[in-house]
Structures are given as structure tokens and as C-alpha cells.
Write a protein that binds this DNA or RNA. Structure first.
Length: 888
RNA sequence: AGGCGCGUAGCUCAGGGGUAGAGCACUUGCUUGACGCGCAAGGGGUCAGGAGUUCAAAUCUCCUCGCGCCUACCA
């Protein structure tokens, strides 16, 4: 294990698979049963089995993984449960499409064979996304992989269904629901996507029955008039008082329909007359119920007109029928107006077919009582949402929640445990499959064909995955889970429902914290989707840049409450960071020469080591604090800044003289401190970028074969803290930069060693003297003289550092014009600065009202700037004189 | 219609009452014994516009203008 084995650039591919194999073989992520450590648990938001990993998943998993790895470092017993959900409609669609390729339908196979076929599909392709989860480095416990259709979880579903039914919280009823004529199933309200569409607004006159005056209604869906069973006006609409209670003749049919008064009607819209189609409109359904109207279903399950639509229309497609109805009304002269109209049209979220509201017999969960508890849990703080902005959304939805339609007319899913007796029509809902009717003893029972909404099983995920309804030790130890990490788009679908079910069946919230993260979008801020073709495939990114680079990118951009616009160049940028760490490791390793595991780092007393130890304490604190508060981007930024700009740019450069020196004791101490700080840094980085850190860890002396996952978060060392070192470092850096600046702006070749003279005295001078060799190293200096009595050389470039004059003699080389230019530029900056500070300090209000500390600070700044200004002015004058003489 | 969020350097975004920050891009140097996926030195912003609170506003409040998202039964 020596530095020769480290390639010049980091190559993630091999490293990643090696680490994954190692962790899995070692069962690093499987918690032990008999372990006294505090527990930390997360259940994965189960991705859809049909899915493949997208950036949203990648972000979601990265954040959870950081939390889990960090919790392990803090000494917790961590369980992260992986799994997938069965995605009823989506999966059924996938398999049906495959069947269609063979020229078959699911009906051809029959239910049992079809479901077998879906299972086969799941065995073959269902692991795809799990492999992708693995590639990202997610430290889940694979021994506890769960699937919503597993036996255990199915048992939980059944228990919950029956229990809620027994409590009267699940009921069956004829209601209007959203029907997808393509999927041929009911959809919950949430599963309908509303899209703005250009449509028509038609005004149709319904003549009065018995020759009386008629009314003109306004509709976007003329074809539904065939199912009208009434016309409503507002009870206070003066125009129509005489009509209330009268009857109208429904055109194109033989039907007589009543005019009724209902306050739902908006008198100001259209004519103020609303046609009522209880069977095909949710509002009309409600109005119809209030007034006892009949429901006439004129559109069937396939989206075609039913026989009830009348002979002329039955069998035609609903949209074709619309045109036909319009033509027919036109002929009758009853279509009085037709205009274009923008309105929202509901579409199936799985297949985008226009949803048909329709009356049918479905199962519902009475959501109100459950919702109230779910709301209170957040109000009380039993569960906390981060960031808190989402509280309102959560509350609002729960406040006016509607009953949840949970039955789906598909075959793939948990079949509802309800039977009807063929003899006496008794409804049986039971935990065990019944053999005979408890009412009449008949053995001929017909099982309800419907299955449950997939979200019904997802709602149980935090406890069903832990073994419920069995009383397992996992359930005891890990429920409630520590945090749920998810996107805001499923707060309703999933988060709220898990809260309801968790509180109902576990009497406790399913998670203490709810962290809502951003949505990942493309560069233009659009949602990534296959149809727009703007997806960035995380696996491709892993292949190109490594999982660590992808993870770090996502983490760095995961600011709370904001969407992430991702582009490939950013991932590439962070790959450079990973490579930087890798190369820092090469440097460290080639300088350790066996120094390790000893306490010699404490002997490293020089300024550079003291400083880095101090800074490292700050980093430890801020990383821990950031992660504890779910401020992932802050942790990433802190680490990035520290690793690259403090550790590599300064510390590693500063200690080179010590490492290359002859003094073996000093070298050993420096190497030991290098090892100490670098290994702690690797631990801090590990939750964010597990692969590269693990790989480097193995290369550290004495660390071979160690699991970095097991290494605790570095202890804090208050004795290393010393804020004074920050000022010293400032001074040090300013000195080095001043020389570098002269070199750069006067275009002096970097290979030319400069001689530098600094006029300084007191402790500052001592400090410079002590660190002469480091300053020389960093600034490319040949000889450095610190002298209180120094006289400025005649031909020297100059600068001012913390009030001390700094000279770089450039006998015969100095370009006076360039040097004067340099000084003038600097003077300009200082003047501008002083000006703005003076303005502030001459304001009496400021002097009186601002805190003394602030005033002092400003005064000190001015004083320092004035001093610098004076010195520079003097120097410039001198130069101008010299130049004038030269020209004279 | 309501709700939420966003407008900060060319691009992507942090920050958040005390003289503006990062990454990428840009300019100029550089075979400096870890790294050109690099090093060094630079340029670049009246923090969307307006009003208010304050000694002090990019930051807090209100309004306006743009942009995005979510929810909703206006036919």
C-alpha cells in the first residue's frame, strides 16, 4: 500500500464496485438486534417497480444516505429500509403493453394468469431500480428489502382494511368518481391532472314543457346533455323566479326535466342557468343528490355513449358524439351561441386520457377523522416539517380533505377482502377468506374484483416494512422512524396518508422529522421528463464522473426550499473536486513514510499546524451543525472551501519545507499532524462522498481493511481552538499575496527568486522571522529580511501589509511606469474605500445610534487604510521623482 | 380564483440589517518534486423596479413588473 499504487487521476469505476462489494459482504448496514446504541431509522420512499432511477431519486437517496452515514458516525444503530412499491396501474399498463405485442389482452389470459405474468415481469425487471439505488452508494439494509405486494405487507394491508371497515371508516357507496376510460378504473381525485385546454362554450336552449318559455343553459360538454335530469338556477336570481318548479323539455330526448333552485349556481356566469348531469359531473352529482334527481349514465366504461344516450348516439365515441349533438341542435335551432373557451380538463395521471367523471360503486376511506389527527401531530410538534413553509400546504389539504376513493378496477394489487353472498347478498369483509356466508351459511361467495389503490399500501410503509402487524423487535426499536425525506410533490399522496395511518394503527407518528427537498429540474428550470427529452440520467453521470461527484453536486445544490437546476457541467466541476481530494491523498501518502497512529502530531507546534488544527475544529462544528439541521448545501460548501482553499492551497504548501527538511524529528511531527488532520477530514467528507474517502482510507497506514463506515465522527479538541491564529493567518497570507501580486503585475517570471525586505518590528516582526522559510516557499522568495530600520531601496517595487512596508528590490529590472501604475491602482481602491467609510463616520446619527462595536470597527478600518494610503503616497512620490530625474 | 416560491457577476446559485460571495465561464502568467481535473494574479454586480421602517436595507414591510410551481367544483 504505497503511493505508487495511486493513479495520477481518480478513477471512480473500479473503486466504487470494490467498496460496494466490501460493505455488502460485511453487512455494514445491517443493524444488530442486541445493541444498546440509540436508534436512527429511515424508510426509503419506495420507488415504483416499473421505474428507473432519475435525478429526483438520486437527490432523495443521497440526502438520506448522508443522514444515515452521519448517524452511524454519531454512534447510532441505524436502519435504512429499502424497497419498491407495486404501482398498480403503471405496472399493469406495462405488462398489458407487452401482451399487446403478442396480440393478446389481459382478458385473454384471465385474472390469475395475468397476475402471474405481472409477477414474472417483476422478477425479471423489478430489480433494475434497486441496482441503481445500490450504485449510488445508498447504505440501505438489503437484508430488509421490502415490496408492497410481499406477504407481510399484504397482511398489513388486509388488517388495516378490515379494521377500518369495522370501525366504519371504510365504506362502499355509489358516488361520482374519476374514471379513466383507457385504464378502465376509478382514480382518486389526486390522480387527476388538470390541464388548461381550449374548448367550446355552447349555449343551448331547452324549450319549456307544454309550450311554455324555455331556458338557455351554457356548457362545455354538450354531449352530457343527454344525461341531464334537471336545470338549476340560483334561488335569488330574479330573472328565473317564475321558472322554478316548472319543467323543460330536454332536446334530442323525450325527457321532461325540472327547473330547480340551488345556491351553487353562479348567476353571473353565462345565462345563470346550469344544466344538471348527475352521472357525469361532480357538482351536478351533489346538486342532484340535494334535489333527489335521477342519474342517467350516458357514457360507458370505455368512453362510448351508452344505450341510455338514445338510439341516435349509443355506441359513438364521447367526443364524436359531442360534435353530433352540436350539429343536431343546430338543425333544431336550439344552439344559440358557440364560442371558444379556456378551461381545465382532467386527465389520467398515468396515461393522460381525458378522465370521465362517472357514477359507480366504489370503496372509500372516510378521511376526516384520520386527517384531524394527522394535522394535530404537526401542530403539536410531534412531527416537524422542514422547511416549515410546507406546514400550510399540509394543513390546508387536511382541512378540506375529501373521502378517499381506494378501489381500482384493475387486477394488479391487493384485492379487496370483501365478498358478497350469492344467496342473501350479505357483504362479508374478513381477515381470513370466508368459506361460507355467516348469515345464511351458503358457500357460494363472490369476491369483490377490485384492488386497492397503491397508495393505500404505501401509507402503511413505515410500520408494515418493520413487520407490523407482528410485534417484531424492529418495530419496537425503529418505530417511529427518525425522518422522512421526500419531495413536496407527494405531501398529499403519501406523507399525509402515512401520518393518518401511522397515528391510527401505531398510535404514534410515523416519523419525527419530515424533510422536504427540492425538485430537480433541467437548466431551464423545467421538470425533467422523458417526453420533453431533458432528463439527465444519473447512471450515465455516475459512469462519466463517478457517484461521488454526482452526490456532491446534488448535495451542494440542495438548499432548502428551492428547486435544483442541474446541468452536466456542474457535475463535471465537482468531479474535479473529487480528483483534488484524491491528489491531496497522494501527496499525504507520499510524505507520511510510515508516520501514523501515533500521538506525535501533538509535537507539531509550528504555526501552520496550529492554524489547521484550529480551522479543523471550526469545520467539524459547522458540518455537524449543518447536517443536524438538514442544511446539506452548507455542509458541502464548508467542506469544499476548507479542503480546497484552506487545506490544499495553504496548509499543504506551508508544510512542505518541514516535510522536505533534514530535521527528522520535525519531519515526523509534521507528517503525523498531516495524517491526523487528513484522516479526520476524510471522516467528515465520508457521508457525502463515501467511495473516494473509503478508498483513500484503506491506503492510510494501519487502516488497511478498515470500514470507514464504522469510524466515529472525530471528537472535538477545544484545546486546539485559538481564534488569534486567524488574524495571524490573515497577516501571513497578505504578506505572501503582496509579493505574488508584485510578481504577477510586473510580469516577473515565476522562476526568478525575489529578494524581499519588510520594515517591521515587535511581535509581528518576530512572527515573520519565525516563518521566514514558509513565506519564502509560498512567495518564491530568495532572501527575506525583516528589519525595523530598513531603508527603501531605490529601485524596488513596494507594497504595504498591515502597515508594514514591503520592498522587492529590482535593480535594473524594475519598470517604473508599471510600478507607478500598480500603485495608482491600489491608491484608487483605498481612496474609494476611505471615502465611503468617512461618509459613514461623519454621520452623527450613526455615531450615536450604531453599536459602539460597529463604530469602532469602522474607525479601525479607516485608520488602517489611512496609514496604508500615506505610505503608498510617499512611495509613489519618490518614484515619480526618480522617474522625473531619469527623464530630465 | 387562491396559495407558495423565485428575480444577486456572462451562466448556475449561496447568503442575508453594518463597505457584495462561490462554482463554472473570462483575461494574464506558469513543465513551482499531489493535482493542467492543476497553480498564481486579475476583470466583472446601483443584489428586478418603486415606496416605507432604520443611524444603516441586497437583507425587514408594502406595492408594481416579470417568471415558475401547487391547489380549486365556476358550467
Amino acid at each position: 500500500m504505497t503511493e505508487e499504487q495511486l493513479s495520477k487521476g481518480y478513477e471512480p469505476c473500479e473503486v466504487e464496485s470494490k467498496c460496494l462489494d466490501f460493505w455488502e459482504a460485511k453487512h455494514s448496514f445491517t443493524p444488530l438486534q442486541n445493541d444498546e446504541k440509540p436508534t436512527y431509522s429511515i424508510v426509503i420512499p419506495p420507488p415504483n417497480v416499473t421505474g428507473s432511477l432519475h435525478m429526483g431519486h438520486a437527490l432523495n437517496l443521497t440526502l438520506q444516505d448522508i443522514l444515515c452515514r452521519f448517524a452511524r458516525q454519531k454512534g447510532c444503530r441505524v436502519l435504512w429500509v429499502p424497497g419498491t412499491d407495486h404501482a398498480g396501474i403503471a405496472t399493469q399498463n406495462v405488462v398489458e403493453r407487452a401482451l399487446a405485442g403478442e396480440g393478446k389482452t389481459r382478458e385473454d389470459l384471465g385474472r390469475e394468469a395475468f397476475v402471474d405474468r405481472v409477477w414474472e415481469w417483476k422478477q425479471e425487471y423489478g430489480d433494475k431500480i434497486l441496482n441503481q439505488v445500490r450504485k449510488l452508494g445508498a447504505s440501505v439494509d438489503w437484508s430488509r428489502l421490502r415490496f408492497t405486494m410481499d406477504d407481510g405487507l399484504s397482511k398489513a394491508v388486509r388488517e388495516v382494511f378490515v379494521s377500518l371497515y369495522e370501525q366504519g371508516l371504510i365504506y362502499q357507496g355509489d358516488y361520482i368518481i374519476n374514471w379513466c376510460p383507457r385504464c378502465k378504473t376509478a382514480l382518486a381525485d389526486l390522480e387527476v391532472d388538470h390541464k388548461e385546454k381550449q374548448g367550446g362554450l355552447y349555449s343551448i336552449t331547452y324549450p319549456g314543457a307544454d309550450g311554455g318559455p324555455g331556458l338557455t343553459v351554457v356548457t362545455t360538454r354538450p354531449e352530457t346533455m343527454l344525461g341531464d335530469t334537471g336545470v338549476a338556477v340560483h334561488p335569488e336570481d330574479e330573472r328565473y323566479q317564475d321558472f322554478i318548479g316548472k319543467e323543460l323539455l330536454l332536446p334530442l330526448t323525450e325527457r321532461r326535466i325540472p327547473v330547480l333552485a340551488d345556491s351553487h349556481v353562479d348567476s353571473s356566469f353565462g345565462t345563470g342557468c346550469l344544466k344538471i348531469t348527475p352521472a357525469h359531473d361532480p357538482n351536478d352529482f351533489e346538486i342532484g343528490r340535494r334535489h333527489g334527481l335521477d342519474s342517467v349514465r350516458v357514457i360507458d366504461a370505455d368512453g362510448f355513449m351508452s344505450p341510455e344516450a338514445g338510439a341516435g348516439y349509443a355506441g359513438s365515441d364521447r367526443f364524436e358524439c359531442r360534435e353530433q349533438v352540436v350539429r343536431d341542435l343546430q338543425e333544431l335551432g336550439l344552439l344559440v351561441k358557440q364560442e371558444t373557451f379556456q378551461h381545465q380538463v382532467g386527465h389520467c395521471y398515468r396515461c393522460a386520457t381525458v378522465v370521465e367523471p362517472s357514477i359507480s360503486r366504489q370503496w372509500f376511506v372516510a378521511a376526516k377523522p384520520l386527517a384531524e389527527k394527522a394535522k394535530n401531530a404537526v401542530v403539536n410538534g410531534d412531527a416537524v416539517i422542514y422547511p416549515a413553509n410546507w406546514n400550510k400546504l399540509y394543513f390546508d389539504w387536511l382541512d378540506d380533505i375529501r373521502d378517499w376513493c381506494i378501489s381500482r378496477q384493475i387486477w394488479w394489487g391487493h384485492q379487496i377482502p370483501a365478498w358478497t353472498c350469492a344467496e342473501c347478498r350479505e357483504l362479508i369483509v374478513s381477515r381470513q377468506d370466508p368459506e361460507s356466508c355467516p348469515q345464511c351459511g351458503n358457500r357460494s361467495l363472490i369476491r369483490d374484483e377490485d384492488v386497492l389503490d397503491t397508495w393505500f399500501s404505501s401509507a402503511l410503509w413505515p410500520f408494515s416494512t418493520l413487520g407490523w402487524p407482528e410485534k417484531t423487535w424492529e418495530l419496537e426499536a425503529f418505530y417511529p422512524t427518525s425522518v422522512l425525506v421526500t419531495g413536496f410533490d407527494i405531501i398529499f399522496f403519501w406523507v399525509a396518508r402515512m401520518m393518518m395511518m401511522g397515528l391510527e394503527f401505531m398510535q404514534e407518528v410515523p416519523f419525527r422529522d419530515i424533510y422536504i427537498h427540492a425538485l430537480v429540474r433541467d437548466e431551464q428550470g423545467r421538470k425533467m421528463s422523458k417526453s420533453t427529452g431533458n432528463v439527465i440520467d444519473p447512471l450515465l453521470m455516475i459512469e462519466r464522473y463517478g457517484a461521488d461527484a454526482l452526490r456532491f453536486t446534488l448535495t451542494a445544490f440542495a438548499a432548502m426550499g428551492r428547486d435544483i437546476k442541474l446541468s452536466e457541467t456542474r457535475i463535471q466541476g465537482y468531479k474535479h473536486f473529487i480528483n483534488k481530494i484524491w491528489n491531496a491523498a497522494r501527496f499525504v501518502l507520499m510524505n507520511l513514510k510510515g508516520a501514523s497512529g501515533r500521538e506525535e502530531w501533538k509535537q507539531a507546534r509550528s504555526f501552520s499546524h496550529q492554524y489547521i488544527l484550529h480551522e479543523l475544529e471550526r469545520v467539524k462544528k459547522s458540518v455537524a451543525e449543518a447536517l443536524n439541521q438538514y442544511r446539506f448545501n452548507e455542509a458541502a460548501q464548508t467542506l469544499y472551501q476548507f479542503v480546497w482553499h484552506t487545506y490544499c492551497d495553504w496548509y499543504l504548501e506551508m508544510i512542505k519545507p518541514e516535510l522536505y527538511a533534514r530535521d527528522e524529528t520535525g519531519r515526523q511531527a509534521a507528517a503525523a499532524c498531516l495524517e491526523k488532520t487528513f484522516s479526520e477530514l476524510l471522516i467528515l467528507l465520508h457521508p457525502l462522498i463515501p467511495f473516494v474517502t473509503q478508498e483513500i482510507w484503506w491506503r492510510l497506514p494501519g487502516r488497511s481493511g478498515q470500514d470507514l463506515t464504522d469510524i466515529p465522527f472525530p471528537q472535538s479538541r477545544p484545546e486546539s481552538e485559538n481564534p488569534e491564529l486567524e488574524q495571524k493567518m490573515q497577516f501571513f497570507q497578505n504578506t505572501v499575496v503582496a509579493v505574488r501580486n508584485i510578481r504577477s503585475e510586473l510580469n516577473i517570471n515565476p522562476s526568478l527568486k525575489l529578494n524581499v525586505l519588510i520594515k517591521a518590528e515587535g511581535p509581528d516582526a518576530d512572527f515573520l522571522v519565525e516563518n521566514t522559510h514558509i513565506i519564502r516557499q509560498l512567495a518564491g522568495i530568495g532572501s527575506l529580511d525583516i528589519d525595523a530600520e530598513a531603508e527603501p531601496p531605490l529601485t524596488a517595487a513596494s507594497g504595504v501589509v498591515q502597515g508594514y512596508e514591503l520592498f522587492v528590490p529590482l535593480e535594473g529590472v524594475l519598470d517604473f511606469q508599471a510600478e507607478i501604475g500598480r500603485m495608482e491602482k491600489e491608491l484608487g481602491k483605498i481612496n474609494k474605500n476611505i471615502e465611503s467609510l468617512n461618509k459613514k463616520l461623519s454621520n452623527e446619527q450613526f455615531l450615536n445610534k450604531a453599536p459602539a462595536q460597529v463604530v469602532q470597527k469602522e474607525e479601525a478600518k479607516v485608520a488602517e487604510l489611512r496609514e496604508k494610503l500615506e505610505i503608498l503616497e510617499k512611495l509613489r512620490l519618490k518614484f515619480q521623482q526618480i522617474q522625473g530625474q531619469a527623464h530630465a
